[in-house]
Design a protein around this nucleic acid. Structure first.
Lengths: 241, 241
DNA sequence: TCAGCATATCTTGTTGCCAAGTTATTGTCT
DNA sequence: AGACAATAACTTGGCAACAAGATATGCTGA
């Protein structure tokens, strides 16, 4: 089946398989660029490009003058994408200490897509509220809520203190909260996201967009964008659990 | 917030944003390496590394001696991850012409994880059946089913012809088919997967693992691994739809 | 013996030059 | 004027030499 393939891709594949199969231990030093170049009979440049890819994927890191090392992979949290409960509750229930840090609460410029999702008028004030989530000191997700001020008049003052949007809504009498139109996609982090989530440029993120609706009043409470560091989670998408 | 950042990451982010915001048209030629190097006031090497990343992500391609061009992004299919119907049915229902190509039907060596999922004995024969899925001539997903021969005695002969596993099961009297323990994760393609899906090494794939169970007989019919080209889909994970 | 310093030898990172490929222009011959 | 060939001016790709950083070794002097 495989006929002729770029040797560079073969090397990447080989190293990748070895890392996944734990042929290298965590923290272990990889062979030097020159050693690898000799092993695979390729110029050092080729090896360097390959190692760079592994670094961008977050599997290894390099120390100038010293060598390259395998990253520790830390933990992986199971996350049920179907559950009705909020992210805060889900994490508490599964025994993970979740820390939330508010990073932004500001009015946004007009954005067709978001205004459509909220069925907002173009002169409505829409606020963007972002929270950064930590587990075990590690940033793992960014939650961003877009909220219409006509629905929540005090949002400008309240926004920068809210830890859990669900709790805020319940407090205001919205109790039957459901998520609609949840869409999942994979992206790469922007520069800001890389810094907030302290991740590399080639670590894919899972993005979930949805609308939160109160069933009894049929009001659209918020449009949500959540960015998860994909390798920190195992996403349960079962219907039944 | 942003204090000091690697200029290289800034360039990648900048180009990435411009591509997403459609500042470059499809098929349009990017500025040459030297032009970009002058624009950003960096050595050509830096620009080259950045452009290489964009290429690995599948956004641009290069023609030696000519230049670099924006890739066309083709289509994006909406896929409901919750629905009970099979992938084949889902695609038909949403009006997409799906073509399936059987690429593998063979007995596998013992694998703890897979045998566990199937609750198989270590001496059972497990067959791996893989199908490549095409939409509009483009490969978009690999479906792999692991099947116990004690449950399906004729699987070795039948395996290489099956287009839809669900149809096969129904034909054999299993009608109440449900998926259990569906787990979603993001990975990068192996070399073989890159070739089959004709994608670049840094295009993330969405993998969904699950078990197919017949509710009435409570038999585990198969363990499934599906690999989707992440950028070809919008995944609907709503509860209600 | 031991502390401290210089050095040799590893590592990864950077840079500049040349090779290879393509295209448009220019020159030349009929 | 038109066909064709040489050439110049771009493009991307590759490589080798060098720079910079870290570490271990060995030397020197007290």
């Amino acid at each position: 089946m495989i006929i002729s393939v770029d040797i560079e891709l073969k090397i990447l594949d080989d190293l990748m398989q070895k890392i996944i199969a734990k042929k290298f231990k965590v923290g272990e030093k990889l062979p030097s660029e020159n050693e690898l170049a000799d092993q695979y009979r390729v110029p050092r440049t080729t090896v360097r490009r390959t190692l760079a890819k592994l670094e961008e994927r977050g599997f290894i890191y390099s120390r100038r003058g010293v060598g390259r090392y395998i990253n520790n992979e830390s933990f992986q949290v199971e996350l049920n994408l179907n559950g009705k409960s909020s992210f805060t509750d889900k994490m508490k229930k599964s025994g993970h200490q979740l820390i939330t840090k508010n990073i932004c609460c500001e009015r946004i410029e007009f954005d067709q897509q978001i205004y459509d999702q909220l069925t907002a008028n173009s002169e409505d004030n829409i606020y963007k509220i972002s929270r950064l989530r930590f587990i075990q000191e590690e940033p793992i997700a960014i939650h961003t809520s877009y909220i219409n001020q006509t629905v929540f008049p005090d949002i400008q003052e309240d926004g920068s203190h809210i830890q859990s949007m669900f709790a805020y809504y319940r407090q205001l009498g919205y109790t039957e909260l459901i998520n609609r139109n949840s869409l999942l996609s994979a992206t790469f982090p922007t520069l800001t996201e890389q810094q907030l989530l302290s991740c590399k440029s080639m670590e894919p993120l899972i993005m979930i967009e949805s609308n939160c609706v109160d069933a009894s009043s049929a009001k659209i409470l918020e449009h949500t964008k959540v960015l998860y560091r994909s390798n920190k989670f195992k996403y349960n998408v079962s219907r039944d659990s």
